[in-house]
Computed example of a mutant assay.
Amino acid sequence: MLLRAVNEERREHHKCPIIFIGHSFGGIIIKEAICLAETDKQYRDILDDTIGIIFLGTPHQGSNVSQFGAFIARLTWVFGSSTILLKGLYRDNPPLSDLQERFMSVIRRRKDIKLVTMYEKHHTYFAQLIYLGFIVERNAAVLDVAENIAVEKDHMGLNKCASPNDPAYDAICQGINRIRDHAESRGWKKKYLKWSERSRL
């Protein structure tokens, strides 16, 4: 679904470099999309144009707190909560580990894709009452091949920016700038300039 949405957007605009940003489970969805884009020809150009990915508190190795979240979801099923996604994020979940291996294989082959991970520095409280600690601990959120940035927020605040002075806003801007600098050093401006010139012919 993510790749189809990106394709539809690209039909409306000229080709341009892509930066994916995903919070928590959204980061897992991006990893699945990147793996699919390498094997499915109709999405290959999306992978070719991806210059970077920013993961906001993504549990690459799973999270112990997801089990508590699944328990809460079972209690609140009447309000539409689902345990399916949370169960997929359990610590040491084999499908999650398999996805990580496949994703890293793609990244090793695609040296142009810059990875940035961000992790919370503050503990999270459920409903501001129940102490949960770190939803995604640092060692589950960071990657050896990425630039890893600590953010002065709890897990829920990593993707919420109240103003340009918000620590999350500053961290995301840092991540985008680092991806842009990396891409420029690999010559992406020349590549996309050629496409824009071609589109005017």
Results as ranks from 00 to 15, higher is better:
159 N>E: 12
72 I>D: 07
131 Y>H: 15
200 R>T: 13
201 L>A: 08
38 E>C: 05
148 N>T: 09
191 K>A: 03
182 H>E: 00
119 Y>T: 03
111 K>S: 11
176 I>Y: 04
21 I>P: 04
106 V>P: 02
77 W>Q: 14
166 D>T: 08
144 D>T: 09
98 D>P: 02
181 D>L: 03
52 G>C: 07
108 R>A: 06
40 D>M: 06
143 L>Q: 04
22 G>I: 04
100 Q>H: 13
105 S>T: 15
27 G>F: 01
138 R>I: 02
65 V>K: 11
155 H>Q: 08
76 T>C: 12
30 I>Y: 01
19 I>L: 04
17 P>D: 04
19 I>N: 00
74 R>M: 12
196 S>I: 10
44 R>M: 07
26 G>T: 12
155 H>F: 00
125 Y>H: 15
40 D>T: 05
138 R>A: 01
111 K>G: 07
152 E>K: 11
182 H>Q: 02
130 I>L: 15
189 K>N: 11
58 T>C: 12
117 T>W: 05
101 E>P: 01
180 R>D: 03
26 G>L: 11
42 Q>H: 03
18 I>Q: 09
25 F>W: 12
172 I>A: 00
124 T>E: 15
185 S>K: 10
149 I>S: 06
24 S>N: 10
84 I>E: 12
108 R>W: 02
175 G>V: 07
99 L>E: 00
132 L>T: 09
112 D>R: 13
131 Y>Q: 14
173 C>D: 06
22 G>F: 08
197 E>D: 14
196 S>W: 15
26 G>W: 05
165 N>A: 14
22 G>S: 12
31 K>Y: 00
180 R>I: 05
35 C>F: 02
183 A>I: 01
26 G>P: 06
26 G>R: 05
66 S>L: 03
161 C>W: 10
18 I>K: 10
83 T>Y: 03
87 K>L: 09
167 P>R: 09
152 E>T: 06
118 M>I: 01
134 F>M: 15
8 E>I: 13
36 L>S: 05
123 H>V: 09
84 I>D: 11
43 Y>H: 03
48 D>S: 13
135 I>Q: 02
58 T>F: 01
98 D>T: 15
10 R>S: 13
154 D>E: 10
74 R>D: 12
10 R>L: 15
136 V>H: 00
20 F>K: 01
99 L>M: 09
7 N>P: 03
68 F>Y: 14
186 R>Q: 13
124 T>I: 09
186 R>F: 00
104 M>T: 04
6 V>C: 12
195 W>V: 08
17 P>K: 08
164 P>M: 09
109 R>W: 00
159 N>Q: 10
134 F>P: 07
50 T>Y: 04
102 R>S: 07
18 I>F: 08
104 M>Y: 06
146 A>E: 00
113 I>K: 02
87 K>V: 04
138 R>W: 00
